[in-house]
Design a protein around this nucleic acid. Structure first.
Lengths: 347, 347
DNA sequence: ATGAAAGCGCTAACAG
DNA sequence: CTGTTAGCGCTTTCAT
């Protein structure tokens, strides 16, 4: 740690700038700039000299100055409801890796399921001149007016998972309908008839689709829908607990289908504690990307989303939009597949 | 969505600037700036006029321009090994909330356990003129030279959890020694004699301390240390699996103590699959902040870290340093307590 | 091929 | 109290 201090001359206290280089090499700033950007209107000689010197002082362009000048920042902004969530943190990994490999910086913001903060995040991103947004909507609001800025100012944006209900935007989602349909089908195949559905509130796109899958599958298999077996429940663990408890006590389900990652984990404990009230064994299927579901007791079958792939896809689409010169591709929705991990020991 | 377009005049295409306001109000930019910053050298009248107008056009200062000018950005940079980790994502929550309430923006970067990327993250932060850093070191490197920039340039920095081995920096940690000591004591209290220790490599500060706690506790209770029961193991799930398998097959432990969050989750499955090879019941204690440990089978007792509090503390220290005018407090280490959650059903 | 100068949005001397 | 100006680091006409 305490090695001899490098000689004074080479110490670059505050990062060295293009101006410093110009001075040192007796050139004008514009020439240096051109050399650095590999412009065609610069002499080979000079270019080489500049590049070498820049290297030697570990020159890095100042992205702030660049941003001010160019109105772009080579960075993208990701807004998710919360990071402490298996699914979202995996998606972020996918985004981070993909963006990094394309030379983009990633800013991660959390909306904490709050529409107001979501807007603030968007404004922060805009203020910082990010080149584009990747957003999964907060669950708390049913309005979308705060997204208008993005459209109006033509800022490239890709939504994923929890997407807005209008059309003219890019979306990356999974086939939620099919995901829950297959989950229910699995339960029915096990002979289950009273499949409880624990769901987040219906204002989110994904919730609606998953709910529809549940209904459709029951219908297709001639099982009548019992409204008592459907309960909506927010993000609070205590609420989940109570919901489950009442469901078990009053409506005797023989299986559970749970609608979202957080809700699944929150519900499992309540099921564990109350399942003795039922005389059948209980089967559980739920959306979750938690990797170690195989350790759970009661056991459950997870419906998994290809989170990293979703992240990678959003980046691909976003960068395509950012770098598109003229002809912009029509906005589209990309749908990936969920997996029903019936042998869920595998990570 | 397709509501009548607001009248042309009020449409602020590109964000309105201080200059626009000056023009509109027939003032100089400096007066506007002063009004906005609530300077004392500005007339009440003018100030009010400016403030109102600014409000009406939804003026937001451009942080990029500000950053260029002021060399500070009112933002901090958090660098963690990975986000998809219960502990780190909780800490980030703590940081986010605390920073937000003090008006600071948070940039989150992942080092992916890679020293080179860690340096890049630091450089990114510096380039973006963040006011300070909160860092938990990547596990892959044993060198610390890449942190010198921070010291040399005097950039406020607070380390947490995985901290560097030198003194002149602020650190927020937990009492890892005590944490594992208590964990082992608990196992011994259960009558366990052959307590296996599955540990990450010893290059991290936290690993060393936890290891020391294990050794000390055995010693204090007159249990001889069996080197065979100590195994080191990286971040790869397959490696953990093999390590556990061999441990069980060859050395017949009657309990496990596992050293880190990720490793704990990775090991549990291997224990589950191999525990039938043992004739005793097995007890498990491990560091993890996963919230739903109570659902696990095999059951385990988690050693928890107060992650949100750690995050909040790092922010408090960092902002104190950032905003300190003259007299800088001596760097110090703040040690919080772990919890041995013996009734681990509680979230 | 190279230099000079303007300007991105903002603040902070410096003048009045 | 208010206006003028320079400058943060960089790119980009526009001259030369």
């Amino acid at each position: 740690m305490n090695c001899a201090r490098p000689n004074r001359a080479s110490k670059q206290m505050s990062r060295s700038t293009i101006k410093d280089i110009a001075k040192a090499l007796n050139l004008s700033v514009s020439s240096v700039s051109r050399a650095l950007r590999d412009s065609y209107e610069i002499g080979e000689e000079t270019k080489k000299k500049v590049l070498e010197y820049a290297q030697s002082v570990n020159y890095r362009p100042n992205p702030i100055a660049l941003g001010l000048k160019e109105r772009r920042s080579h960075s993208i902004c990701v807004i998710v409801p919360e990071i402490a969530n298996n699914f979202f943190s995996e998606v972020i990994n996918g985004i981070d890796r993909a963006a990094y490999s394309k030379g983009y910086n990633v800013f991660i913001f959390q909306s904490f399921e709050d529409g107001v903060r979501e807007l603030q995040c968007i404004e922060h991103g805009i203020d910082r001149h990010v080149d584009g947004f990747i957003i999964s909507l907060s669950g708390a609001t049913g309005t979308y007016g705060h997204l208008d800025v993005l459209k109006e100012e033509g800022i490239p944006t890709v939504y994923f998972d929890r997407v807005p209900p209008f059309d003219q935007v890019d979306k990356v989602v999974v086939d939620n309908f099919e995901g829950s349909y297959n989950g229910i089908k699995y339960l029915i195949g096990l002979g289950k008839k009273r499949i409880a559905h624990i769901s987040n509130p219906l204002n989110l796109s994904i919730t609606k689709e998953r709910h529809a899958g549940y209904l459709a599958c029951l219908q297709d298999h001639g099982i009548e829908v019992d409204e008592n077996l459907i309960q909506f429940c927010g993000f609070d663990p205590a609420e989940a607990h109570q919901t489950i408890q009442e469901m078990i006590a009053h409506h005797k389900p023989d299986a559970f289908f749970i609608n979202s990652d957080r809700l699944t984990l929150n519900s499992l404990r309540a099921i564990k504690e109350n399942q003795h009230l039922l005389n059948t064994s209980i089967e559980i299927v739920g959306f979750t990307n938690f990797k170690h579901v195989g350790l759970f007791n009661p056991p459950m079958i997870p419906i998994r989303q290809p989170a990293e792939a979703i992240g990678a896809k959003t980046v691909e689409l976003l960068i395509e939009k950012i770098e598109a010169k003229r002809h912009v591709r029509e906005p589209a929705t990309y749908t990936l597949k969920t997996t029903l991990a019936t042998n869920s020991m595998v990570s």
